[in-house]
Structure formats: C-alpha cells, structure tokens
C-alpha cells in the first residue's frame, strides 16, 4: 500500500527519478499532483471544440515519454506546462486550418483573446479555480441553484425554466448574471490576494 502524503517538489523529483528507472507506477503521483492545475489552465485557454481532458492526458503522456529531456532539480511544473502550451498550440493550429472552423465554432476574436492569455501563469489559474470555488460557496441559494442545474445536473434550459417557473429567456439572463457575478467575485478576490502579497 502507498501511504503517501500530498506530493511536494522533493517527492515529485523522487518520483520522476523512479520513473526514469523504469517504475512507471511512480508517475501516478506526478499526474495526481498536476492534473488539477493543468486541467484548469487548459480549460481556461482551450477554444471551443477542444477536448480539454484529452489534451491534458496527451501532455502527461508527452512528458512521460520525453522525461529524459527533463533536467532533474529544475522546475518540472514549468516544463510540463511548456509541453501543454505546445500541445494546445498544435491543436488550435489544427483547428484554424479547418476551413469553416470559425463559422461553426465561434468567433476567432475569442480564440485570439484566449491565445493572448496563454502566458498567464498556471499557478494563477489554480488560485483562480480556488477563488471560484469560494465565490460559488458564497453565492446566494437561488443563483447557486442555476449553477447546479446547469453544470451538475446538466439539464436543458427548458427544464430549468419549468423548474423555476420562468421563461427560457429569463433563465438565460439568470445564467448570464451568475457567470458575471462569479467573474466579478473572482476578480475581487484575486485583486485582494495580489494586494496582500505585495504588502
């Protein structure tokens, strides 16, 4: 049985050494440590039409197969995210080459804006995810209900409308409101955190 506390940098390096010596199973701890920030970063930057989990898994597999290129003792997280950035760029390039991608998937301006944000640090996105969780917890019951219906139960707009006895356009407005409120809450928390760190 493994009785491992959450991985720190030393344990990550130790696990990577074991992987290099052929102990594939040791890579599990590495995947567990980085899956959340990696998926969060990819989720926030991948344009529509990209399977985020597939890309995250591809990044881990690429890191595993190229592990000999990693210099032990340096920054594995940075190395992994460089691979993920490359994977994402490859995927978005592929999508761009599909003739009618933007006609089908959405505005190229969105993709450009997401591309522009790719330089934001992965750590920031972990913090953002945590902030979102806290913002969600602080959301009023009625708005949280919409989040639950939409993202947890994944019910159609019509059913949401029936459940809350409102029209579909009203439900759409509520969803807009929820997202905007959460967005503002995240920004406030991030600004506070940055201010705090600077003191």
């Amino acid at each position: 049985m493994a009785i491992d506390p959450p991985f720190d940098d030393l344990q990550t390096e130790s696990a990577l050494r074991r992987v290099c010596h052929g102990e594939t199973a040791a890579f599990e701890g590495v995947v567990r440590r980085f899956e959340r920030p990696l998926r969060a970063w990819l989720a926030a930057h991948a344009p529509p039409g990209v399977d985020v989990d597939e890309l995250a898994q591809r990044s881990f597999v690429a890191a595993f197969t190229r592990l000999k290129e990693y210099q032990p003792g340096t920054d594995f997280a940075a190395w992994l995210f460089t691979i993920a950035r490359f994977q994402l760029r490859t995927e978005t390039t592929r999508l761009r080459r599909i003739a009618d991608y933007h006609a089908r998937y959405g505005p190229d301006l969105l993709q450009r804006e997401l591309d522009r944000r790719c330089d934001e640090t992965p750590e920031m996105w972990t913090t953002r995810l945590e902030s979102l969780q806290m913002c969600l917890d602080s959301l009023g019951e009625s708005l949280r209900q919409f989040v639950s219906w939409r993202y947890d139960e994944e019910i159609p707009l019509e059913e949401m409308a029936a459940r809350c006895d409102r029209s579909v356009p009203a439900v759409k407005k509520q969803l807009w409101k929820v997202r905007q409120k959460l967005q503002q809450c995240i920004e406030t928390r991030m600004a506070t955190a940055n201010g705090g760190a600077a003191q």
Binding site: R39, A40, A43, A44, H45, A46, V52, L110, L114, R117, R128, L129, L132, Q133, L136, V147, R150, Y151, W176, R179, Q180, L182, Q183, I186
Partner: peptide, 11 residues
C-alpha cells in the same frame, strides 16, 4: 465569461 464557464464545468 468563457473562462469562468469552463472552470465551472471543471469544478
């Protein structure tokens, strides 16, 4: 909003 939407899906 797109990014918040994506993170909600992740959460």
């Amino acid at each position: 909003l797109f990014q918040t939407h994506r993170l909600l899906g992740l959460i």
